[in-house]
Design a protein around this nucleic acid. Structure first.
Lengths: 337, 337
DNA sequence: CTGTTAGCGCGTTCAG
DNA sequence: CTGAACGCGCTAACAG
């Protein structure tokens, strides 16, 4: 309830000095006699004096804090990106506050308000599957606070973005399946609202076309990424008269869930049906069968996003660049194909 | 670089009012005429006015922010605890800033400084495997900022703690192995510096004693949790003249790593050797063989820690309670035993 | 080298 | 109902 903060005034009084003198030594401004400087430093350490960044930030209009908003924490993807981003941020002297929007638009909006109120110097965002209105994010632009998107980006905003070549990743995955003799390849796709789902779907379709396989819309199921539904969709696919011999899933959690369902039905993977996921989550290599997946350069994504943001922060608003970094994916072949 | 913040003064000037009037409507104090109130509110919304919490916190000496410091993010344990803690915190009107110390004492210290400088109202901490000096944490006590430990706690500080019954969890795991005919059970233990390792080790020993199995110190390997070493230790165990027929690992990542090594050597799990982990990480259920493990009530841990912290924050320093909540574990039997 | 002053954005007195 | 004045902890500008 009652914090006992030690302030500059406290140590000024104790040493019979003016606040500005104390402030000077604490900020490193040299114009202080060695004697008083040492006395101040000693007392500061003894009292565990800690600068009140609130006051400093209030003056400087800079908090050295960047916000990160991601839709969820349940897969290993976002946590890993965050760790990488934090590394770069910390290195550059920035703190990070991260919040997860829980795949909910309202929460995302609320989170942005909090970030604004706390005067973050910039934010890194991956939007929820629900987000269609971007007003809450455009506020940042208007206020001169840089914003960088990654993974799930907002197309209509001209700001830096870090994405992977989802089209190519999906294309390579499906092409690989075909080259290995699969003829009926289903796609458990993400929500149509996300560009990322769209591109992966495009890659899927393109690979089929290129290999002269007709696209069967029955084999394409777009869903909202709520894992509990995967069971229904997979069973639906397997119950078809002419069931698929492979499934390309929009992400690893979906693929992993699908594998559980398929195993439970007693089918053999990959003999009866092959599976490919996307993102190379932590669990993918450990499961049985281990999951073939389109790996993303996760650490690079996080580091790039953080770097782009910090670059923007250090630039004047008029100099903002809206580069989009497209990183490469890599197909990692494991037992599920 | 240049943020365009909208302040109370801005809207006061635009409406030809005094700052205090504007402030009144924005804080909900009723003494304002309906007309001016509405005018203010309208303009505020139009300009995306957002209170500067820095200023408010500076005055109120309360940031409504709690800090969370954990040693790592690589297993699913800490992220899940954090999510649960955040839920409670958000509900109670608190923001959270989380930082990971990367199992490094220096980073932990640095993180606490940042938290202090940013005037958090309290912190939730799980210490690193290296932390032996607690001065950086005791500062919080001295400054009247509550602190709550979970999982890896600091024994010498009289503050709230949330732990599980590690002894019992380990005991039950090892007892189960013995009841299933295992006679030479190895223990890949954690660093001796952590109480948590010690208690799990005690549980292991106790179960052996109770079942009249002699403790073979050769079978007990304490290590620093650096996963790369697991391979060496497991191979060492398997190369013994009289190798173990079971391994009880101090945590799931260790167990998972051990399984990979064992599989690579062509041994059968659980026929040749059984494995039990601790914590029921996300991947444990998915791997092959799926991992028998001592589950912790992860969400409950996070929620309890957050609640205890908020309770402390709302109490006067003189009323601080130092309860230790000990939660129950549950042995989850899967294929690895 | 040192002290004084002003002000960051806001809430909260205290006077009208 | 409204305005003026003060202060949170700190830095910066200005005087010595």
């Amino acid at each position: 309830m009652k914090k006992h903060q030690v302030t500059i005034i406290d140590i000024a009084r104790a040493l019979n000095l003016s606040k500005s003198t104390v402030s000077r030594v604490l900020t490193g401004h040299a114009n202080v006699s060695l004697k008083t400087r040492e006395a101040v430093l000693e007392l500061a350490k003894k009292l565990d004096y800690q600068k009140n960044m609130l006051a400093i930030s209030l003056i400087s209009k800079k908090t050295n804090t960047i916000g990160i908003i991601v839709p969820e924490f349940s897969s290993s993807y976002f946590p890993q990106v965050i760790i990488a981003a934090q590394e770069v941020a910390t290195q550059a002297g920035y703190n990070t506050v991260v919040s997860q929007s829980n795949e909910t638009y309202e929460t995302e909006v609320a989170n942005t308000k909090v970030m604004l109120a706390n005067q973050v110097d910039g934010i890194i965002v991956s939007i929820t599957r629900e987000t269609k209105n971007y007003d809450h994010l455009k506020i940042f632009e208007r206020k001169g606070i840089p914003i960088v998107f990654f993974n799930r980006v907002c197309d209509e905003m001209k700001v830096p973005k870090v994405i992977v070549d989802d089209f190519e990743g999906a294309y390579n995955a499906v092409d690989y399946l075909i080259k290995n003799g699969r003829k009926r390849i289903a796609h458990l796709a993400g929500p149509v609202s996300l560009r990322i789902s769209e591109r992966r779907l495009d890659g899927y379709k393109s690979a089929l076309k290129k290999n002269n396989i007709e696209i069967d819309e029955e084999l394409i199921i777009s869903y909202d990424l709520g894992l509990s539904k995967v069971k229904i969709y997979v069973n639906h696919l397997l119950n078809m008269e002419n069931p698929p011999d492979a499934i390309f899933a929009v992400n690893d959690p979906t693929a992993i869930e699908a594998i559980q369902v398929i195993k439970k039905r007693g089918l053999k993977i990959p003999e009866d049906i092959a599976i490919i996921g996307f993102s190379n989550d932590y669990a993918s290599a450990l499961m049985a069968p281990s999951l073939t997946t389109v790996a993303q350069p996760i650490a690079e994504i996080g580091m790039t996003a953080a770097q782009l943001l910090i670059d923007q922060i250090n630039r004047d608003v008029s100099d903002w660049k809206a580069v989009t970094k497209v990183l490469k994916t890599e197909l990692i072949i494991r037992e599920s194909t």
